[in-house]
Design a protein around this nucleic acid. Sequence first.
DNA 1: GTCGGAAGCA
DNA 2: TGCTTCCGAC
Length: 744
Amino acid sequence: MKYSVSEAVASLTAALLGYAFPEWAYKPESSPGSRQIQLWHFILELLRKEEYHDVIAWQGDYGEFVIKDPDEVARLWGARKCKPQMNYDKLSRALRYYYNKRILHKTKGKRFTYKFNFNKLVLVNYPFIDMGSTGSSVPQSAPPVPTGAGTHFRFPPSTPSEVLSPNEDLRSPGGMFSTMTRRAARGSVSDCSDGTSVNSEIEEGNTGVGEERGDRSVSGGGGGPGGVGGGYRSMLHPRLSHETLFRMYGGPGNTTGHPSSRGPTGHRIHQEPLSPFPVSPLPGPGGAGLLAPPLSPALSMTPTSHLPYTPSPTLSPMLGSHFSFNPEDMKRYLQAHTQSVYNYGLSPRAFLHYPNIVIPQPHRPTADKAGLSGERGERGERSTTAGGGERGTERHHHPPLAHSAHHHPHPPHTAHPHPHSHSMHHSLHLGEEPPHISPFKFKLQPPPLGRKQREGQTQTKLRQSSLSSGSGSGSMSSTSGLGSSLSFGSDLSSASGSGLMSASSSTQSLNSAGLPKIKVEPISDIESEEEVEVTDISDEDPDERDEEFELFSPRHSRATDQHHHRHLANGTATLHHQPNPDEDLDEDVFKAPAPPPPGLMPFFTSQHTHSNAHRGLLTLKSEPTEPGDSNTPPPQTGSAGAPQIKCIPLKLRFKRRWSEDQRMEASQEESDDKKVRPEEEREKERQSNGRMEMEEDGTGSGEADSPPLLVYEGSLATPLASHRRVSAELHRATAQLSLENKDC
DNA sequence: GTCGGAAGCA
DNA sequence: TGCTTCCGAC
């Protein structure tokens, strides 16, 4: 067809250009519902052509581009669409429509600067791909964002310099072909004769080229997983499973030589799927190959001016070589992605593309009922220890982001109610490796902006936890959420004081550049516990939730603070969201609960809905160790307490743990008090603490911060202060009951 | 400059 | 559906 050629050309062009931008992104076919080129396609076209870089170019953050010459761009667009009257005002209106579609965002404070939400584009273009574990249940087209674009991008763009490494950046398949590419790239962008293709001539003969490119990428070290024949064209099966994706993107670190690191074709797949774009949904001539995830245009083309290195899209230092997992590089990639998450809205899911990244998973050798008790014991011990750095205690809430190095102690998720939704988990288990506990965890470090507040937050009792999903749109200033570090797979339950540590560590991790960074650090139970915040965006307001990055955005944090955080004694808060079906799939990454230990499965399975699942997660996450929370988490707003749980053992268990912890803490506290304070004072304090606890329980004030899950239906709702005591007792009693329900 | 509603077109 | 056009508001 008319596109086959053009596609091939586009593919080639992209390859030659050295930036892996899936050709499908430029194709009309990738614009559902329209045979006409869409504006964003057009923009991409311009962006990928050097000749237009003086008119429009990638700049700033990942996916961010600036229209240097609005009039010219408008003119080109008008020419392209045969709309001579086109002007920037109209063009910009069209761009604004992308806001709600989440295809594009406006970079506030920067004129003519926008950002692509690649994740969204992917979703748009890969409707059939189950991007998230729960993605299947999520509507593809998220609801419009009521708050408008204004609420987005709370994070000032951070400099990519730290985020991107030249190598990574350049790991595009076709760097060496830059010259050709440029030549080839020259097309008539303003050709209004052909509404479907910007550069019709260029795209001619696209077919087949993609494969070639794919091959090149393999040999060229390109970006890609190369191997994957078909270049950007994807030969994906209509229903690409997560497993497949993982395979595509490399399973366990290549260092492990995991089978999953190889593509279907047997080509080695690189673990660094840099591009936010997954394989093209379009069938490729090659047939079977999965494409190598192309580098994101943003990554490859991202600005050069402020980068310490020059990420020329056309030259890749890495040419001809295979990617080998380099922790440093990986880290950078992660950072880039993180940045995207923070600043650009990319989903944390992007981490899925980084098989080598170890997302701490709960280390539960047995992953059984015993796990809890054991865990509990560990925790208890830890709780008494200030900085316990034991590892392997992280728990499940981590989204199954990566599996390679990181072992998933969880048993097969066969019991999972959402086969599709949690396919990721399955994929993670590909090639079941021996249990391995990652000694490191990756934490998303909030951008600078949040830091200040975060510190403030920390100082303020570390009450607000960042990742909350709030419904309200926050102001830039409210960055409390930023302070939270995301710990994928980190354990919520933490020893007391962990929050502080976490906060400090996070702050620490923030570099002067202010980039959101991925913090790689030894897993500390305590820390992990506190970091749990991350989470569940499922409940967020559709609009807000919509943007993945918002998970990390201050706004969320703030909102969460106000409405969803559960404040932990240690200063960390767990957030919970209100279920929202419209959520972006991206969020699933977070949402997707890691498989619970067998014993807990019932609980999870019972959570059928998205939100429920989340809650389940949250519940786990919030597994509280903090004394302050020990009694009862605040009631979750909305349906939190819904009788979805048939078998409550989990909660009960948690409860029990809480109670125990509380007791322990109390004891400890008392001991401490005895040392330094008179009995009377101690008593006073205890009482005070008790009140606080009760309040946090949900029996008191904490409506805003209602914690999700752990809440017991029965215990939660005791609004009256007079009932606090009773409630506490009830909780304890319940905890006891948990023993009975243990086997539920 | 940016936003977003409204109406209209293909 | 995806803009295009117009326009008032900020």
